[in-house]
Design a protein around this nucleic acid. Structure first.
Lengths: 137, 137
DNA sequence: AATTGTGCTTGCTAAAAACAAGTAACATTT
DNA sequence: AAATGTTACTTGTTTTTAGCAAGCACAATT
């Protein structure tokens, strides 16, 4: 569906070749920062992703090794999606997107105090979510 | 051209409402990390952005206060684009995209050594580019 | 055996990006 | 001062991608 073409040898350009769209990073947010692991969780996540786009992005993310899936033992028609190590290395970037959005969204529900605390605890927060992702794989 | 709609109150979603596409962050990279300040610089940057997309993104980024422009004194048909303070606060996120891309692009021209050095000097590097952006505005 | 839940695919429409060309303002060269 | 070049766009068309609605296969539940 979405075609991935390498545009230059700039590392930022390379990251955006894979992640540069409205939806991909939201799926990674759900897996890495939320406690979401199933197709239906991503579909119901609040932003309203279309099913064809969701299926396409999950396929792509698995193909490039950012996420992995395995059959879910308890319900065999469900797939359990989790981050790979390569995927967890995107957590710092996602934290930065979170901080910027929380600071600059005029309708943000995040308080200045919460924001300040998170800025001070950056390394701790990253370590927390990385550890959680490893535990979940 | 590109319509911006707020999809949820998640800060990451908010950031992606503005920045989530293949091109926007590349323009910010050119201004904040490169020494590029003119339309033609962004157009010639190597990835091959189309002129209508470039004009649209520059307009949007200025509207939401991430960049600013002023007429260039030396050549009055040129506009000088630079980061606002709000824009410079995206530098940490861009550095993380750079680090991830440099590490995971199999064709990356960045050596392990350079990568390790940059990881150790993260704060210094961010401070450097923030200071440069302020100097250029 | 019938209904529901989950993870998709397929077909159609709408929006955005890619491509090609043109224009207006100023700058430079002749 | 006229012609040519440069810069920053706009406009029109084609191609690609996203959005929406429906459907389908498989498993689990009733």
């Amino acid at each position: 569906m979405r075609k991935i073409v390498k545009r230059s040898d700039c590392p930022i350009s390379y990251s955006l070749d894979l992640l540069g769209d409205k939806w991909t990073i939201l799926i990674l947010r759900d897996i890495a920062l939320g406690d979401k692991h199933f197709y239906k969780d991503f579909f119901e996540a609040g932003e309203g992703i279309a099913t064809n786009v969701l299926a396409d992005r999950l396929r792509m993310l698995e193909e490039v090794g950012i996420i992995q899936s395995k059959p879910y033992e308890k319900k065999k028609n469900m797939k359990y999606y989790s981050m790979t190590k390569k995927g967890t290395e995107l957590i710092p970037m996602m934290i930065e997107l979170w901080v910027w959005g929380a600071k600059h969204d005029p309708e943000s529900s995040v308080s200045e105090k919460t924001l300040d605390e998170r800025l001070l605890n950056r390394e701790e927060i990253i370590a927390h979510y990385k550890a959680k992702s490893i535990g979940e794989e």
